[in-house]
């Protein structure tokens, strides 16, 4: 699905990713944990194509294509989805209108006909129910006036609508109470299939009680320094990151 090799990325001349390697196969869920400033959100931003970052070395192959060569929108159309840590409020742009445009631009990219209004609305109903997102929120301006939990549910709703191959969830659990966490996780789990994969970036083990990872990675100082089974997350929760830093 995705293969990241020796990825180096910097912002304003400061190197954040320092030779990151990661491979995720179809059907897998990978969790990336790590202390503040390790480069977790940078990894998500670089994968989505944020132009503030400069890639100084390395490669990312996504479904056989050079991901770093594609503009942001083409990465999305190829099937990459980033659930934002801080979803952006966009006054005046309606959620459903923008999703319909997004869906149709993706379909045009794949030489498919635009979705009919009827099929689209049916999809909206089905997918908003999945994350228990009020239909009213679906038609309001993108994230405007949404609570923290509603914004995150809206991210998963959009993900469900766009049906990505690879979802990168950037600290989707931050700012969520237990109920919202459960709903968001249910949404993610419901979308899981042998054909797609997820990278779950998180600070806390808590989320991984709901979304069970196949592999847990520790990102520290711009590199993956340790990988292990899901139990690694529990160990990190208990012991913190110092023992990993010391073992380097």
């Amino acid at each position: 699905m995705i293969k990241i090799e020796n990825l180096h990325a910097s912002i304003n001349g400061k190197e954040i990713l320092k030779g990151l390697d990661l491979e995720v196969k179809a059907g897998e869920v990978h969790a990336i944990m790590g202390p503040n400033g390790a480069g977790k959100s940078t990894l998500a931003a670089v994968l989505a194509g944020r132009e503030d970052y400069e890639i100084t070395a390395g490669s990312v192959t996504f479904l056989g294509k050079d991901l770093l060569d594609l503009p942001t929108e083409d990465r999305a159309r190829e099937g990459l989805f980033l659930a934002f840590q801080y979803p952006v409020e966009i006054p005046g742009v309606s959620n459903v209108n923008f999703l319909r445009t997004a869906l149709n631009e993706k379909r045009a990219y794949h030489n498919q006909e635009p979705i009919s209004a009827k099929d689209f609305m049916a999809l909206v109903r089905e997918k908003s129910a999945l994350v228990e997102l009020d239909a009213k929120l679906a038609s309001r301006a993108v994230n405007e006036g949404f609570s923290g939990g509603e914004k995150k549910r809206n991210e998963i709703f959009q993900m469900a609508m766009l049906d990505p191959k690879l979802a990168v969830l950037d600290e989707t659990d931050s700012g969520l109470d237990i109920d919202a966490l459960r709903i968001v996780s249910q949404g993610v789990n419901a979308l899981k299939s042998p054909e797609n994969a997820s990278i779950v970036i998180t600070h806390y083990q808590r989320l991984l009680d709901y979304i069970i990872p196949d592999v847990v990675h520790v990102l520290y100082d711009g590199k993956i320094v340790k990988s292990g089974p899901k139990e690694l997350a529990l160990e990190l929760e208990e012991r913190g990151y110092d023992w990993i830093k010391e073992s380097l």
């Binding site: 194509g49 942001t72 929108e73 990465r75 159309r77 934002f84 952006v88 005046g92 766009l162």
Partner: peptide, 23 residues
Amino acid sequence: NALFYLRARGLSAATAKTLLLQA
């Protein structure tokens, strides 16, 4: 940030810009 958000959902830069200006 809004432009990037829309592009990250698959909207072309031109469409994203138009949508934001119209809004």
